[in-house]
Write a protein that binds this DNA or RNA. Structure first.
Lengths: 167, 167
DNA sequence: ATAAACTTTCAATAATTATTGAAAGTTTAG
DNA sequence: CTAAACTTTCAATAATTATTGAAAGTTTAT
């Protein structure tokens, strides 16, 4: 496999994987492109490489910046803006985990909390609703805590965690 | 909040959350409904409760069965089929984690493996592609391993894991 | 101040994904 | 065997989500 083919394969796979970590295709592809680029890319570069429109590029770059994954770079002597992504995979994972916790998991925990604390009217179905949503809340809480703990261990968190869990 | 309101809130929240664990809205809502039901439900019951068509119900029930989350129940004296879902949240999480690993993570690891082992032609961009996709492969491998380890600890895996990681 | 270089916005459109409903298929009771 | 009860399939349609492109907005150089 040659460079160009490998690159395209990587960018498109990462793109379709976007949904797995909760972002859209173009957004994931732009990030993938920046991730393997040896230098900052301009909007033109990105549009060209991915064959997507200016508007699309602009909107998705903004989202990536909102996530804190991509940053603007000023290149001296150039008028246009350039972009780079976080290059360290562990830091990247940390950012993604934090954002997903904040955007998706926390709000769900809140709803589960509300639903699981309704008044017990003594009926079987109410008891079941309370019991099951409470269990789900505990699980979600635990997973969220675990994820945040994993991600907050600065150095080599993953390796360390895998090691600890093997004991 | 009364039972009916709480139930609807739970079902719709869990439904829109579906995307987070990689399934569609109707599928997640059906599972949510079964999860808080005190008895097996028929297709009619589900259609009625969620106001969705017979076809939709049938297709999504099949998918839930493919995932191994929902099972058919035979109710004596009844001709139609009834359905139940796994009621234990930890077992549920275990099934979901296993399936997502198999369906989504493993295939990505395979692509990363392919891309990260292309021939190094000595150019900077090829070196960067190899380096970055290799790092991503390691991360993904580690996360997958971690997830499977977590999930294979039979009793109280989550609580135990959280405890271990606090040390 | 103004024009060129660039970015953002957003209504229109395209692409994708989910849902319906009726016909075809299957199972069971008599 | 046949009709009723039930489930599945799938082409058509609806709903949702992503993308375009051109106009409006912003910044910078002169």
């Amino acid at each position: 496999m040659e460079y160009q083919e490998a690159k395209e394969k990587f960018v498109s796979t990462w793109g379709s994987l976007g949904t797995l970590w909760g972002i859209n295709k173009a957004m994931a592809q732009i990030q993938a492109l920046l991730f393997i680029s040896t230098k900052p890319l301009s909007m033109e570069d990105i549009m060209e490489e991915l064959k997507i429109s200016r508007g699309n590029t602009s909107m998705n770059l903004r989202q990536l910046m909102d996530w804190g994954i991509v940053t603007k770079e000023i290149v001296r002597g150039e008028r246009k803006e350039f972009f780079t992504t976080e290059k360290d995979v562990q830091e990247l994972a940390r950012i993604v985990a934090k954002e997903r916790s904040r955007r998706e998991i926390k709000p769900v925990i809140k709803v589960l909390e509300e639903v699981s604390t309704i008044k017990d009217d003594g009926t079987e179905k109410t008891k079941e609703l309370i019991k099951q949503t409470r269990a789900l809340k505990h699980l979600t809480d635990d997973l969220d805590t675990l994820m945040n703990k994993l991600v907050n261990q600065k150095q080599n968190w993953l390796t360390k965690s895998v090691f600890k869990l093997m004991k």
